[in-house]
């Protein structure tokens, strides 16, 4: 892995072009207002954190971005194009990948197969080639295997390559899930609490991976995380949600001293 000059890799890239622009997004389920007129943008190559107390609408926000929920109001502009009623697999083909708060791996498959599955959109062999395992299919399988092996090396999970993921400990499962998302070579990577339930060492590993992904592959990362130390260290900009509303938006230092944010998190001081 390359050594970094600054601990905060994304920060100097904060002025790049906007990759995703969310404008006035409102989402409700029946009478429950999950998101209310939220606007913010994500710039190319930055690490953008979305934070907020439980039930603030963070995961809903990610679900809106990758087409799992469709907001009742507002526009989403991705790479300069307004996207409407996008299905999750469309988002995937456009380069948006994500991991889940509760691990959503394919339990019956090995680590290798899970990550290989992440490459579905990079493989195009026909049914007959697959049935006979010849020609294009054989070449694709080998070429994609090579790519997947670079991810396995990157995430340091060589030893569990052939283990069914159901048997892996929690921290490693999180890592395999990150690998599966990376396999798609995403432009925008959405991480939903990548460090939940991890010990300090695992958190350090995961932080290192995120910075390396951001730096080596140039991937834009949108991150939901509760560990404030991690968020403040890693992210270039932070958006704070509370009860489905946007509370604040800005650089880590601004957020740290924002009165509303402190109130939402710690209650009113004295």
């Amino acid at each position: 892995m390359t050594t970094r000059t600054t601990p905060c890799a994304g920060s100097e890239a904060a002025e790049t072009e906007v990759i995703l622009d969310l404008d006035d997004i409102s989402l409700s389920f029946g009478g429950v207002q999950a998101l209310e007129s939220i606007s913010f943008d994500i710039r190319r190559h930055e690490i953008r954190a979305i934070i907020g107390p439980n039930g603030a609408g963070k995961s809903s926000m990610l679900n809106v971005i990758n087409g799992f929920y469709h907001p009742q109001k507002g526009t989403i502009t991705y790479e300069g194009v307004v996207v409407k009623a996008m299905k999750p697999y469309h988002a995937a083909t456009r380069g948006i990948a994500r991991t889940f708060q509760n691990i959503a791996l394919f339990k019956g498959m090995s680590t290798l197969d899970n990550i290989m599955t992440g490459r579905v959109n990079h493989m195009h062999a026909g049914l007959l080639a697959q049935a006979l395992y010849i020609g294009k299919n054989r070449r694709e399988e080998i070429r994609n295997r090579e790519f997947v092996e670079t991810i396995i090396d990157f995430l340091e999970i060589q030893a569990i390559r052939n283990t069914p993921v159901g048997r892996l400990p929690y921290g490693l499962q999180k890592r395999v899930e990150l690998g599966r998302a990376l396999a798609a070579e995403p432009k925008l990577l959405l991480l939903d609490e990548p460090m939940a339930g991890m010990n300090l060492e695992e958190k350090q590993d995961m932080s290192r991976f995120m910075l390396d992904i951001n730096e080596q592959y140039g991937t834009t990362i949108a991150l939901i995380e509760h560990d404030m130390a991690v968020v403040m260290e890693l992210s270039s900009r932070i958006v704070v949600l509370d009860y489905g509303r946007k509370l604040a938006d800005g650089k880590p230092d601004e957020i740290r001293h924002n009165k509303d944010v402190i109130e939402a998190y710690l209650g009113v001081a004295n």
């Binding site: 990758n66 799992f68 299905k87 999750p88 697999y89 988002a91 995937a92 083909t93 990948a97 994500r98 889940f100 959503a104 791996l105 394919f106 339990k107 019956g108 498959m109 197969d113 290989m116 599955t117 992440g118 579905v120 959109n121 599966r180 998302a181 798609a184």
Partner: peptide, 19 residues
């Protein structure tokens, strides 16, 4: 792999690009 992905976790399968 697409079949097994749908079998094991259909939502995740859809999100990584499987129809």
């Amino acid at each position: 792999r697409m079949w097994m992905a749908i079998r094991d976790m259909d939502i995740a399968a859809e999100i990584i690009g499987i129809r």
